[in-house]
Nucleic acid binder design. Structure first.
Lengths: 346, 346
DNA sequence: TTGAAAGCGGTACCAC
DNA sequence: GTGGTACCGCTTTCAA
């Protein structure tokens, strides 16, 4: 990596002291210098192809302009737009993003969090926290600025950006009730995650608000937010509640698992059973039938997470802010009135 | 960021010189020291919660243990598994990954490449190169180790990891020909990208090998590898070649655009027209009809990219290696014999 | 307004 | 084997 133009080279070229170059290059210090000197420094820096060494600046200033994010799975269509939006918001303000995958099953893995802290990231985004997470504990202890995204904790001890999961489930329930459903069941996500837990609660509350009882057999928890976990959960649920005319899944992947479960049993969607998901991930409009779902803008969540974190880092924001975005209903072909459309004359 | 335990603190604690601590902490230097000292240093470092400062190490050693990747879209289901696989391979060897989104349309954007080089990344992965790319030129000039992934250049001046696009198209053509198709057309991707260009060539070559002529009207280039770009291309192609019984799309998203085009015209898939895609991205097995496609393991490509790049950086590999992975056919419901299955008796 | 000098926290080379 | 020391490139405090 030798051969880079340094601040000294520029100083020598212009005939000034290195610290003068440093000041000329820093917009916030620039006005303390003579205008001609600033101009000459900038010109020389440009001409020599000077690029500041981030490591040196970081070492001296204590700021790395690096943000770390820990996600459970980069390839998951929920998390990739979050990363994308986050990256965009950070880049706009001169920060770069280190992305780390931390699948929940990888136990005894190297300590990712410590690795990022050792790299002196200026802040951290956690997209994988459970309801009470040790990682948050440690960030707090180490005084590393942190923002949770998508999933939050039960306590609001750190800032977070999440979708209103309760409201999302209310939309889902009201949609189905509006169509005439009354026997509605829920394939829940892991209850160790806020998304799984809140959506389950949102389901129960919305059902109660609609005057519908939710028996203990109306909710089945899936082992993970995946298609694979959705299938057995759907099987079990449909067996327990053969009368159900609608299934609300805690996310789209689970909903697809429900599709498979229905297919296995020879029941048709939406003719026999309506299905609704959560997230509106890419392509669910192309499956058969097109999936009705609760849309969350993950990209926007990522962007707002970035802005919030940088505001905290730069001191522009002091309070622990909880940003809650509002989801919306996207009705497609997987939800329909419970009985065939033939009117019940006579 | 004050308050971190430094190497000096550890040295003081153990009663040795800082450089001794540095050596004790470096596995490759450790054996030059007395075993008891190593043990004491390690114990003290652990006890004091010592974490090496990556910036300081980077500044002095010239190695940042940071790799940069530039992708056209993180959220694209093709690139996210590449990132995921890459990240895994790098983490296994102590490197972290900086991810940067560089959508093709963002012109006059800040110079991403320079930004990454300024951060002194030890190497770069480019997932967004065109057939002759300026970014490659600059990496070469700056002597930054670089590996291309997914898309390559026409010339093999730098290492790359790509799928065998020619072979993939041969699989697609042979599959359709085997089903009895002869009037096969191609929705091509952008010809400025290796994937678009090679798949087009692979189509033409495979058709020729099957003894089928490809007229100039049998190929239609889409403006981008997206569903949105696939629809107009499909419209035009189906209008020009109403006799076509099968469409090969350059990727899955284009194939979904073709689905929409067929639907518009009231033609059914696969009954009237067979469709085959490329990539086997998530969920295409759930669309209607389930999409036949050419499967590429993007995650594996990402992993091999990481290994290759680190081998280059550590000097374990000198030659410019081109890794070409073999794709496989995944036949699903979107491809079928050209005429209805009713045998042509009498 | 500019120059000088002192580090930030490691690493690497030179002595001993 | 271990200690000493210079220094990576930049920022920042202090002088002038």
């Amino acid at each position: 990596m030798a051969g880079f133009t340094t601040i000294k080279d520029v100083a020598r070229e212009v005939g000034v002291h290195p610290s003068t170059v440093s000041r000329a290059l820093d917009p916030s210090q620039r006005d303390r210098l003579g205008p001609s000197i600033v101009e000459r420094v900038l010109e020389a820096a440009e001409r020599l192809g000077y690029r500041p060494d981030a490591a040196a600046a970081s070492l001296r200033s204590g700021r790395s302009h690096l943000i770390g994010i820990i996600v459970p799975d980069i390839a998951n269509p929920v998390f990739s737009p979050i990363i994308s939006g986050l990256e965009r918001a950070l880049a706009a303000r001169g920060y770069a993003l280190i992305v780390v995958d931390q699948p929940p099953d990888r136990t005894a893995q190297p300590d990712i969090l410590q690795m990022l802290v050792a790299r002196r990231v200026d802040g951290l985004v956690l997209a994988n926290v459970s309801l009470r997470d040790d990682a948050v504990e440690r960030c707090l202890r180490w005084q590393v600025p942190v923002v949770l995204v998508n999933r939050a904790e039960t306590t609001a001890r750190v800032p977070s950006v999440v979708s209103d999961d309760i409201a999302g489930m209310r939309l889902a329930v009201e949609h189905l009730v509006g169509l005439g459903h009354r026997a509605i069941v829920h394939v829940a996500g892991p209850q160790s995650l806020s998304t799984g837990s809140l959506r389950r609660r949102g389901f129960i509350e919305a059902m109660a608000a609609a005057g519908l009882a939710v028996g203990g057999d109306a909710v089945m928890e899936a082992a993970a937010f995946t298609r694979e976990a959705g299938l057995p959960a759907a099987r079990e649920l449909l067996k327990r509640r053969p009368d159900a005319t609608a299934v609300i899944a805690a996310n789209d992947l689970l909903a697809l698992g429900v599709y498979e479960g229905l297919r296995e049993q020879g029941r048709r969607c939406p003719d026999d059973v309506s299905v609704i998901g959560h997230n509106d991930m890419p392509l669910v409009d192309m499956v058969s039938p097109p999936l009705s779902t609760i849309r969350i803008s993950h990209r926007e969540m990522g962007e707002r997470t970035g802005q919030l974190l940088l505001d905290i880092i730069t001191g522009a924001r002091e309070t622990i802010t909880q940003i809650v975005t509002q989801p919306e209903l996207v009705a497609r072909g997987s939800t329909a009135p419970p009985t065939p459309l033939t009117p019940q004359f006579g």
